[in-house]
Simulated assay, not measured.
Amino acid sequence: MAKNSIYIALTAMLLSACTTSPTGRTQLVMMPDTQVNQMGLKAFSQLKQKTPISRNAAYNRLTHCVASAITQQVGGGRWEVVVFQDKTYNAFALPGNKIGVHTGLIQLINGNQDQLAAVIGHEVGHVLAKHSNERASQQLAVQQGMSIAQQSGMVESNAMMGLLGLGAQYGVLLPFSRTQESEADEIGQNLMAKAGFDPRQSVALWQKMAQASGGQQTVEFMSTHPSDTTRMQDLQQHMASAVATYQQAQATGRRPHCQ
Score class of each variant (00 low, 15 high):
S132C: 04
A129I: 04
P199N: 06
P226G: 00
K208E: 10
W206E: 00
A249C: 01
S223R: 04
S147K: 13
S177I: 09
Q247V: 02
V243Q: 00
F221K: 09
Q138Y: 14
Q233G: 00
Q115H: 00
L164Y: 02
T252V: 13
Q113S: 04
L191G: 03
G165F: 03
E181P: 12
A118S: 12
D198N: 14
G214P: 09
S182G: 04
I187S: 03
G188H: 03
Q250M: 09
Q211H: 08
G153V: 09
L174K: 05
M239T: 03
Q189T: 10
M222R: 10
G153P: 06
S152V: 15
A195P: 08
A136M: 14
A210N: 06
I187Q: 03
W206D: 00
V119C: 04
G153F: 11
A210F: 06
I187N: 00
N112G: 03
N133L: 09
E123G: 02
Q247C: 02
L174V: 15
N133W: 09
E123T: 00
S213H: 03
Q250G: 04
Q139C: 11
L164C: 14
L174M: 15
T218G: 05
R200P: 03
Y246N: 02
V124Q: 02
V155N: 04
G171C: 12
D234Q: 13
S177K: 11
R231Q: 01
G153A: 05
L128P: 00
Q113I: 04
E134C: 11
Q138R: 13
Q217R: 08
N158K: 14
A249L: 07
H122K: 00
L166Y: 04
Q216S: 12
V142M: 05
I187K: 01
A204F: 02
S137P: 06
Q143K: 11
T218C: 05
G121I: 02
L191Y: 02
S132N: 12
L173H: 07
T224F: 02
E134Q: 15
V172D: 01
V243R: 01
Q189Y: 08
Q139H: 10
M222D: 05
G196D: 01
Q143I: 09
V203Y: 00
M192S: 10
T230K: 11
L164T: 07
M146E: 11
R178S: 00
A244Q: 13
Q248F: 12
A251P: 01
E220C: 07
Q151A: 15
Q144A: 13
R231V: 03
G188Y: 01
Q237S: 14
Q211A: 13
Q143N: 15
D234K: 14
E220W: 03
V203L: 08
P226F: 09
A184N: 06
V219Q: 13
G253D: 04
Q150K: 06
H238W: 10
M232C: 07
Q201T: 08
E186Y: 10
E186G: 02
T229K: 13
F221T: 09
Q138F: 13
E156L: 11
A141I: 12
G214L: 02
R178F: 15
L173V: 15
M239N: 00
M222V: 11
